[in-house]
Simulated assay, not measured.
Amino acid sequence: MEELLNHHMFATHAIAAAGSVALGTALTHPLDSLKTLIQVGSGSSQQLVAAQVLDRVRSVSGSFGLYSGLGWSIFGRISGLGVRFGIYELLTAFYKDGRNEDYVHVSEALLAGIAAGALEALVSTPFEFCKLRAQVASASHLPTSSTVKEILGTSPIMSKLQRGYAPDTKAWENTVGLLSTLSNKNSKIVGALKEYPWMMTGSGRTPFIYEVKGPLNIISLEGWHALWRGLRAGIVRDCIFGGVFFSSWQFLHIAMLDWKAIDMDPQPSSAEEIGPVSPLAASIAAGFSGSIAAAASHGFDTAKSRSQCIVMPKYISMERRLLRWKPPGFWLERVAGISPSDRNILFRGISLRMARCGLASFTIVGSYFLALDHLL
């Protein structure tokens, strides 16, 4: 009976946690879409604002374009937050082992949050990659289906590169024109050239990002490893976010307990005698901590978003590995995955991300406590 009750309690907490994460993600996804489009659309000489991005999305995809990639975002957030809080609870349980009080220091919360963030980035990066491609496609003009079928009909072998991709036919025709002066002893020379991906993409022109947005298209053109593109910047971002989030939350939790103990008579001798803080106070503390953590880690979030926005076919990646291509920039930029051209735009969209993370953290914690009150 006790084992059945434990399983019931675990299932209840899992359902409440998944539901709260889905609610918080859906509520704040439009802010995330605006933030992402500002990050990938801005340049050193181009300053985008939320109103411009919103008008662009509405003109291309309508108002529902702000919810593009919502499914990927929900799955990624559920898996990522599950890993983040799971690893954090395991590490803090190790810290508290052998102590008389159920207490975690702020420094311990910081270290546990850093470790949890690293594993969270590894799990959630593929979902964020697909989400970003869908968000960018919602603000990009797509070629009509008839145009794609017409181009692919002229060269069926091109369809092997990627489904739905319309190659640069002008560049292809120019290339064939240059080859027309050669000897025609080999009548299959044009067909043989079509077998090479760098010819099918238009003499080296890679496809636009809105042409490579589905997981099957991404894998067929860029390979499996592309799903973890931007992992370096993502690990640094999530380590900073997790460490700042949990340490700030723990600091505020301790401050609220001390404030609550002021009016108690006699004065409590331990945190257990004070009791837990109210769900509303915990939600506000989580929202404030999420905003601070978002501000601290936003530069690496921009670096990750912009790196995932680059379409890199498999043959280019293979050439870089064979040539041992060294990324440009200082050693810190190479380790963290930051492009030198993005130095001046790393903090674009920071206010939107702070609002999104703060509101999402407040909603997730508040709805989680509310769901537990109704389910238990």
Rank of each mutant, 00 (worst) to 15 (best):
I209K: 01
V21E: 00
G19L: 10
S203G: 06
M256N: 04
R77Y: 11
P328D: 09
F246W: 04
R306D: 12
A166I: 09
S45D: 13
Q162H: 11
P266N: 03
G117M: 12
D55Q: 13
V277T: 14
H29Q: 07
G204S: 07
R77P: 00
G117K: 09
R237E: 15
F75L: 15
E2Q: 12
P266Q: 07
L37H: 06
G62E: 07
I310A: 13
I114Y: 09
D55M: 07
M1E: 14
L37K: 02
I157E: 15
E173T: 14
A51D: 09
F64Y: 06
M256Q: 09
S289R: 07
P313T: 10
F347P: 01
D238S: 12
G65F: 00
L322S: 11
R229I: 05
A282L: 04
L257V: 00
Y165M: 07
S44H: 03
F251N: 02
S278C: 10
A22G: 03
C239P: 05
T169C: 09
S73I: 03
G24C: 00
I274D: 08
D55W: 02
E195S: 13
V53Q: 02
H29S: 03
P279T: 05
E173P: 06
L359G: 01
E128F: 10
A115M: 14
G177D: 13
S45I: 05
L152C: 15
G69L: 07
F245R: 01
L27H: 00
A282Q: 10
S138L: 01
V277N: 15
G41M: 03
T201S: 03
S107T: 08
E272C: 04
T92A: 15
I218W: 03
H298S: 05
V311R: 06
I240R: 04
F208A: 11
H13C: 04
I74Y: 00
V21D: 00
R232N: 14
Y315F: 15
G19F: 00
P313A: 07
R163S: 11
H141W: 07
